[in-house]
């Protein structure tokens, strides 16, 4: 079987999935509940989302493990479930993954701030990520996305932990904002810093995900491309979330999302997809778009 990285390195643009969190909420996850716990308590719901994304045309779907580090699970009192929640999240995806498609293990930030500004030590952060990466690898993922990172040190530690503990291909992806001085993460990291430091620790792809919409992901990749020979991951949000009563809604419809994302394809994209606010409908659109750009066969 051809490995995921081989296909990307051969120049193919692989289609990833859309959001997990918003889809889980639509299908019954109560506000404030632990999404990763659904991997063991509501396997059928998690699997229905995986299946819908494969059906919509995703080559790669992400496991429901974004908040699966010990520190994030501790918010829900589930810090001792790291292994079970992550491994099961990966196995559920493996079970429904059609031949020739892939499973990506999702790893998000710890939610803590590293020393000296915060209280998290480098060693502890490494352990958090190593533990999660190992469980995902055992569950059978093909690649790991370290995503939505804002602190460069934390992103570095995560990429390093994945590489050292699993040897799997790894994406290092951060969330940027548009500022007058170019793209920056909330912690102040610019594109050059990110490219330099994540490449040095062995990232196979660099990426921009989440954020305020397609524009900022486009700007980030435009800044990164001249600085690196690596392929990129682009997974923007469906715009800036707006509050209506109790609901958070995302303004980009599948149509407007498709139109904007077409511009992203002028860059060296290896993985394309969506983040918060995007669903199977958006992915169907992107499949059509990709087929147009890169006709199969």
């Amino acid at each position: 079987m051809i490995k995921v990285l081989d296909r990307i390195q051969a120049g193919e643009v692989l289609l990833s999935d859309g959001a997990m969190g918003t889809e889980l909420q639509k299908r019954g996850l109560p506000t404030g509940a632990c999404p990763e716990e659904f991997n063991v308590t509501h396997a059928e719901i998690v699997q229905s989302i995986y299946r819908d994304y494969y059906r919509a045309g995703s080559d790669i779907i992400e496991t429901n493990t974004f908040g699966g580090t010990r520190s994030r699970l501790a918010i829900h009192g589930k810090e001792n479930e790291v292994y079970r929640f992550n491994r099961r999240g990966a196995e559920l995806a493996r079970e429904v993954c059609p031949p020739g498609r892939f499973v990506a293990g999702s790893m998000g930030p710890t939610g803590e701030i590293l020393e000296p500004l915060g209280t998290l030590s480098v060693a502890k952060a490494y352990d958090y990520f190593a533990e999660q990466a190992e469980a995902l690898a055992e569950g059978g993922v093909d690649i790991i996305y370290v995503e939505t990172m804002m602190a460069i040190e934390e992103a570095e530690i995560a990429v390093k932990a994945v590489k050292e503990k699993t040897g799997l291909p790894v994406v290092g992806s951060m969330t940027f904002n548009l500022t007058d001085g170019g793209v920056r993460t909330s912690m102040g990291v610019d594109a050059a810093t990110m490219v330099g430091r994540l490449t040095a620790v062995g990232a196979d792809l660099l990426g921009a995900n989440c954020g305020t919409g397609v524009e900022v992901v486009l700007a980030a990749i435009e800044e990164m491309q001249p600085l690196s020979p690596l392929p990129f991951l682009a997974q923007p949000n469906a715009g800036i979330p707006q509050m209506t009563d109790h609901l958070i809604v995302y303004p980009e419809t599948p149509q407007s999302f498709e139109q904007k994302i077409e511009q992203v394809l002028q860059f060296r994209i290896g993985i394309l997809g969506g983040c918060c606010g995007t669903g199977p409908e958006h992915i169907i659109r992107l499949r059509t778009l990709l087929n147009k750009h890169h006709p199969v066969g």
Partner: peptide, 12 residues
């Protein structure tokens, strides 16, 4: 809010 300061600035 304007992108002229970052989280480390808020923390300090």
């Amino acid at each position: 809010g304007n992108g002229q300061a970052f989280i480390p600035d808020l923390l300090i």
